[in-house]
Design a protein around this nucleic acid. Sequence first.
DNA 1: ATACAAGTTCAAGTTGACTTTAAGTCAAGT
DNA 2: ACTTGACTTAAAGTCAACTTGAACTTGTAT
Lengths: 146, 146
Amino acid sequence: MDISEIAKASGLPASTLRYYEEKGLIQSYGRSGLRRLFHADVLQRLALISLARSAGFSLEEILEMFTPQGPEINRKLLLIKADELDRKIRELTSMRDNLRHAAVCSAPSHFECPKFLRLLKVAGKNRFRPLNKLSKNKPTGKAQKT
Amino acid sequence: MDISEIAKASGLPASTLRYYEEKGLIQSYGRSGLRRLFHADVLQRLALISLARSAGFSLEEILEMFTPQGPEINRKLLLIKADELDRKIRELTSMRDNLRHAAVCSAPSHFECPKFLRLLKVAGKNRFRPLNKLSKNKPTGKAQKT
DNA sequence: ATACAAGTTCAAGTTGACTTTAAGTCAAGT
DNA sequence: ACTTGACTTAAAGTCAACTTGAACTTGTAT
């Protein structure tokens, strides 16, 4: 398969695929002339990468998880990541509850609502690092702009 | 309170506070000479900002949520964000389960494990945007480097 | 044979959220 | 008067994850 087929099938632009290859996240098995040739199974790998990216992992972290530098280290890493996700899930859940409450709360300012302040305080206890933005408005599956 | 007090109390560097003020996320009530003067309640606001950041909101989104451009629009926005969080929580939960499974799975490659592939397939159904990185190694609460 | 579409490289640009740096201001202490 | 230390500004730098641009190569269609 050539790069545009992978692009179409994965929904990722060719530029991203080249970038991923450069970073070692995917491999092409050879060239036809200059053109990269891919096995179909990179699609699975790309799905996995997308999943991990969406779960908040950086490309570097994903690469770490892919490369088995001793299988035990790897398993450990996976569990550590899972625990991180647990923390993050709790944070998001609290934030979500906060938002739902704020939307119906009648206090003139949220800072005057005891419920809100209590949640704030609880949340403040763990000084966590930001994840980053949620979806905004970018279309979900543009393949390329040909 | 001057900027270093806020920095100390919030755990954020002064540069970040200036940046936030510039972006309209916090306000100083005046100056003493050149120096900004803050009311103590910016600390609450900063806690809220931290919470929201950690939940994956961009500064722009947080600003939107702060500025009441008609209270109804605002409530709606909050609910929309809450729904987004619900989606994200489901994704993270699935990823976490994936990781925990992968850590104990005995299949030679995860791509040969039916359980894993099924999860992948399910996850692939929603083409989501990335959040971003989880915590990595940066220390949690450096105030400044004075 | 030649044009063209679709690939290629390498470098530079973009975005968001900050941080760093250089140069300046100013109140307080000696 | 002068040094110090904490602040100030504006501009530039950083980082990840891409994207874009300019110039180049190739297999296929006319």
